[in-house]
Design a protein around this nucleic acid. Structure first.
Length: 789
RNA sequence: GGGCUCGUAGUCGAAUGGUAAGACGUCACCCUGACACGGUGAAAACUCCCGGUUCGAUCCCGGGCGGGCCCACCA
């Protein structure tokens, strides 16, 4: 017999059972249709937070649902290990170490962290096939990533070129955008007089030290003051160089004088303008912040050069005005010094020119919710330049090339030699085949998105097993957050398309961000943080899983509310107790003849409609609809009404007939079993415990098949009659409340008026028994129920 | 500043071209042979504002205002 509901008692036991039954294992030999989930490889941070929880719950709902539908589900799990946050943590702990030693420490740290995250994921009951685990730090994974780069290189999609990168002149290194902070500071806006056809042309700038690198002057095309300047040239003071005056709509006419000087490179905007107008590049400073190509100012540090240049401009009376200006400046988070843009040799993947193909591939996928594809489309349309994927860091996959010191010729390794580390390994040939120049091994590593943008290929067995790959590509589902559409989704679609010529997913399921009670994205710094393990401790894993479905419709940002968790727990408790009641009621059941009553037909009809709604909802990844449709039905129709209306038949077979009792028993059993199936993907532990205790000791509900709606069971007439019955019972309950009577008080008589009295003919027994009425009179008229004590 | 998205009872949150589910919270009553982690009821919403289309809009269109997410941030 069922005990009290205590989920913590059976969670672990159930996990072991699933493992024994190998429920989550993908069957490579099976001929069943496959369903492949391109699981996100999380970055190992040590904690599986509630945002991850939502994301993985969605995947697990799908995985469990699809298995019940008969699919052979591939639910792998990867770890996206490389990245600068790890480097930062390791450096903090050990200080600066030699390259190889530093890498070792990063690996150690990563393994530690994964070993704390994995148990959390197992505890959540995610039905991952852990045999399909992969790590981006593995040699094999390195090999595949480098293989993909080589393939793209062969297709002319990878090249080395000079490009502006974020650079810290204090540390003498390129840095990633994620390593920057922003501060507000006050600076001077200098109005400097250029000249055009002998007349002065005043330009406001905060960077006079970049005057020597000025390559163009821009005005807004709509700005009436400067229309006559379009196409003319301006002369840069001190350096006496002529630069073009170009119209560009991104120039703000209200800032300064409405004229901008473009330098290579003052800021991100300069980079954009340089590319857009194909401007020449003048390298303004070296890696330590000393001016280059600046005449007599060459070699001076930028700050000093600024003073000298301003001094000289002042002497020449070329500064017409000075204003104070507050500005936001990007600084390097480690040394807190402002960041510059510096031209340096980097590696690129060709994006420009492929936008249309990428959008076409994306359009062939089903995006849920559908509007989320727009983020990707906008991103494609706004692409300004190719993807600079090289990083001057240590912990990552090496870019597998050597290049000639003299002629920049690129040497690639042979495929059988992968993976390589050109920083350490010898090149395949001694010298440059073109000019005999010395070959230099690339020391840069790949951007982390290079690693993670081939996951649909890797889980499909690419590039080694063609037969397997044909069967396992594209992935059926890519589940991910809305925050990384422009990165993970975008790069994956692009790279897989370039490598295979085919779109990499069928469906893309986008989940929203989990927010704190203040409506903002949950983060430790905002203090609006709730930890998954606290929820589990205070409630249960299943409540947390159900919360993921209850917290709002798919794709929306959802705020974490304890009330959703509590509701989930109450519901599961209710389901548990209803099961207990049914278990007891089925005790003395035999297989004899049955006679269904209207209430049975009503609840079975409703059940079949619920099955249909839930199935459709699952097909559309609409977990909210699935769970709420079900809970509403089970709690407020099945428990609140049906169970009350059936008790008399169970308790008094002598009075109401054994055939009626058998019908009640079989209906209860059908509704319960179907209900358990419908909720199994959500409350995986609780439902399986109920299933095993009530229906099958040996098996698991997760190996059962998903219910199919039976159209023959839809019975509108019985539904209508039962609704009327429920309305009458509600009136009886109201009356008892108003008289402060308990609901089991017996009433002497009821006079019921309804428009169609014949509707109540078949449910008179229920009114009598569930309403506890001695004598009932039914007549035709406007709906009314008169009761006597 | 740009894109996307949302704006419905105290708090959440569905639905719909004809004035609106459900949950939490509140209040009242009920320990009825599954469940007090329960039951039955009650109170509580001019569906953000202004226009337009329509016989009629919360739902459609336009314009505001205000959240959120992502991106770009100003020479």
């Amino acid at each position: 017999m069922l005990d009290e509901y205590a989920p913590h008692k059976f969670e672990e036991k159930m996990r072991k059972k699933w493992e024994e039954l190998k429920l989550h294992e993908f069957d490579e030999k099976s001929k069943r249709k496959v369903f492949i989930i391109d699981t996100p490889p999380p970055f190992p941070t040590g904690e599986f937070h509630i945002g991850n929880t939502l994301n993985w719950c969605y995947m697990d709902f799908v995985a469990r649902y699809k298995r019940m539908c008969g699919y052979n589900v591939l639910f792998p799990q990867g770890w996206d290990c490389h990245g600068f946050p790890t480097e930062v943590k390791v450096e903090k702990k050990y200080g600066r170490l030699p390259r190889e030693q530093f890498k070792e420490k990063c690996l150690e740290w990563t393994r530690d962290v994964i070993s704390t995250m994995k148990p959390q994921m197992k505890e959540m009951g995610f039905s991952i096939d852990w045999r399909q685990e992969y790590y981006t730090i593995d040699k094999e994974y390195h090999r595949k990533v480098q293989y993909s780069i080589l393939k793209m290189f062969e297709k002319g999609l990878v090249y080395r070129s000079k490009h502006p990168v974020l650079w810290c002149t204090c540390c003498g290194s390129a840095i990633a955008k994620a390593e920057t902070d922003e501060i507000e500071r006050e600076t001077a806006l200098n109005y400097i007089s250029f000249s055009c056809e002998g007349k002065p042309l005043v330009i406001a700038t905060t960077r006079p030290e970049l005057l020597h690198a000025c390559v163009a002057v821009l005005v807004n095309p709509e700005d009436g003051r400067y229309k006559q300047l379009h196409g003319k040239t301006a002369v840069v003071p001190l350096f006496n160089r002529e630069v073009k005056i170009i119209p560009d709509s991104e120039v703000d006419p209200s800032f300064g004088t409405g004229i901008v000087m473009v330098c290579t490179f003052g800021d991100k905007q300069d980079v954009t303008w340089s590319y857009r107008h194909n401007l020449p590049v003048i390298e303004a400073m070296d890696g330590r912040g000393k001016l280059l190509n600046a005449g007599k100012f060459t070699g001076l540090k930028a700050e000093l050069a600024r003073e000298k240049i301003l001094e000289e401009l002042n002497l020449l009376k070329l500064i017409t005005k000075k204003e104070k200006l507050k500005q936001m400046v990007k600084i390097h988070d480690r040394c807190k010094r402002p960041v510059e843009f510096l031209n340096s040799a980097q590696w690129f993947m060709k994006l420009k020119g492929h936008e249309e193909e990428i959008m076409k591939a994306a359009n062939e996928m089903r995006w849920v919710p559908s509007h989320t594809i727009q983020l990707l489309i906008d991103w494609c349309r706004g692409l300004e330049w190719d993807w600079c994927f090289s990083r001057q860091r240590i912990f990552g996959i090496p870019i597998p090339f050597w290049y000639c010191e003299k002629c920049d010729c690129v040497i690639a390794p042979g495929y059988p030699n992968l993976p390589v580390d050109p920083a350490r390994d010898k090149p395949p040939v001694k010298n440059c085949p073109k000019c005999e120049g010395k070959l230099i091994g690339e020391t840069s590593i790949c951007d982390g998105w290079v690693d993670s943008s081939i996951t649909p290929l890797v889980i499909g067995g690419w590039p080694d097993d063609e037969k397997k790959f044909t069967a396992l590509y594209p992935s059926s589902l890519r589940p991910q957050g809305t925050d990384i559409i422009r990165t993970w989704a975008f790069y994956t679609i692009y790279r897989c398309l370039m490598l295979t010529g085919k779109p990499c997913f069928k469906d893309v399921l986008i989940n929203g961000m989990v927010c704190g009670s203040d409506g903002k994205k949950m983060s430790k710094s905002l203090g609006n943080y709730v930890e998954a393990k606290d929820v589990i401790k205070k409630s249960s894993v299943d409540s947390l899983r159900m919360w993921a479905a209850l917290s709002g419709s798919t794709g929306k940002d959802n705020i974490f509310y304890w009330k959703d968790v509590n509701y989930a727990h109450s519901f599961l408790n209710k389901l548990w107790n209803a099961s207990k009641f049914i278990e007891f009621s089925l005790k003395e059941s035999d297989g004899g003849k049955q006679k269904l009553r209207v209430t049975d037909r009503w609840i079975l009809s409703r059940l079949n409609k619920v099955v249909e709604t839930c199935t459709n909802a699952f097909e559309n990844y609409d977990f909210y609809t699935a769970i709420t449709t079900f809970t509403e039905f089970f709690w407020h129709e099945f428990c609140d009404y049906y169970l009350e209306e059936v008790k008399h038949r169970l308790y008094q077979p002598d009075k109401y007939g054994t055939e009626s009792r058998r019908a009640a028993q079989s209906t209860l059993k059908t509704v319960l079993l179907t209900s358990l199936k419908l909720t199994a993907p959500f409350a995986a532990y609780t439902i399986d415990e109920l299933y095993q205790q009530l229906f099958s000791k040996e098996e698991s509900i997760h190996a059962e098949s998903w219910p199919k709606e039976d159209k023959k069971m839809i019975d509108e007439e019985s539904e209508q009659n039962a609704m009327l019955l429920n309305k009458v019972l509600s009136e009886i309950r109201k009356f008892k409340m108003s008289q402060k009577l308990s609901l089991n008080t017996e009433l002497s008589s009821a006079k019921i008026k309804v428009e169609k009295p014949e509707q109540l003919d078949s449910v008179k027994e229920e009114i009598e028994a569930a309403g506890r009425i001695k004598k009932i009179e039914i007549s035709k008229g406007e709906f009314k129920v008169e009761l006597k004590k």
